[in-house]
């Protein structure tokens, strides 16, 4: 499958994603990836019943996502990956999934996190994961909606090559 969008958003699929992002980055399939969301049957039902028309939503843990993306590499459809934590993207990249750019759309503050941009708060683990992605040459950009100007998260976090 061709990855059209990789987005970190703890709201997962919501109005901005279905109306704005999928219009700009069309995908027939959305993978919602995360160990906790995959373990929550209610959330799975909600995500699947509210899928936009013509889009299949699959909810899975990180290991399954990596395996499925490899297994379906010949599938010609576009897939959008929605995740909540950058560490999960590191896992995918380490499994050889080709990810060149990550859109950061929403990370709520939590214990131990610090706010680095409007709607983006990261803890140490997130920062390490972002640094790892940056070192692999992955673009890290903050935008809530596609028409926003890209903010360079690597620059904000002070990463240098």
């Amino acid at each position: 499958m061709n990855i059209s969008l990789v987005r970190i958003d703890d709201r997962l699929i919501h109005g901005q994603v279905t109306t704005a992002w999928l219009r700009q980055y069309p995908a027939e399939v959305i993978f919602v990836i995360g160990d906790s969301v995959a373990a929550n049957p209610f959330q799975k039902v909600v995500l699947q019943t509210t899928a936009p028309a013509g889009v299949t939503v699959e909810v899975m843990d990180t290991a399954t996502a990596a395996a499925e993306l490899i297994r379906r590499s010949q599938d010609s459809r576009n897939v959008a990956l929605i995740l909540t934590r950058p560490a999960d993207i590191v896992h995918l990249v380490e499994q050889g999934i080709p990810i060149r750019s990550v859109n950061v759309g929403g990370m709520q503050p939590h214990t131990g996190s610090r706010q680095v941009a409007k709607s983006v708060s990261v803890d140490q683990a997130d920062e390490l994961a972002f640094r790892h992605l940056f070192e692999k040459g992955v673009e890290l950009e903050i935008r809530m909606v596609p028409t926003d100007k890209k903010q360079d998260l690597a620059k904000i976090l002070g990463f240098t090559r």
Binding site: R11, L12, I13, H14, G15, T18, F42, Q43, V45, V46, L47, T49, T50, A51, P52
Partner: peptide, 14 residues
């Protein structure tokens, strides 16, 4: 339909 308020209410409902 499908927005965050709708999704949260769906979770509570389920």
């Amino acid at each position: 339909f499908g927005g965050t308020p709708s999704n949260i209410a769906s979770m509570l409902f389920l």
